[in-house]
């Protein structure tokens, strides 16, 4: 799975969790906080992205993630 594949899943899930967000706002260098996600929204994006990709990642692995790129990297590491 490429970084782009994973990012597209994360982007789709982010837009499901934050339906009022213009899609073009969701770029890889942004953080979920920048996009207006609160702590529960952020947890939803992380867990639903995993579910959507069909992978299991120990959740604390996401603790140090700073932006969408970091999130995509952790997911990609466990997807391949």
């Amino acid at each position: 799975m490429t970084q782009l594949d994973v990012f597209q899943t994360v982007k789709r899930v982010t837009l499901e969790v934050l339906p009022f967000l213009p899609p073009e706002e969701v770029s890889i260098e942004k953080s979920l906080k920048d996009l207006g996600a609160n702590s529960i929204d952020r947890m939803e994006v992380v867990t639903r992205s995993m579910e959507s990709l069909g992978i299991k990642v120990p959740l604390v692995e996401f603790g140090k993630v700073k932006n969408l790129e970091g999130l995509v990297d952790v997911l990609q590491r466990f997807a391949n």
């Binding site: 702590s39 529960i40 947890m43 992380v46 867990t47 120990p58 959740l59 604390v60 996401f62 603790g63």
Partner: peptide, 11 residues
Amino acid sequence: DADLSLLSYLD
């Protein structure tokens, strides 16, 4: 770290 705590709680 509120995010880490929430993730750990769920785990």
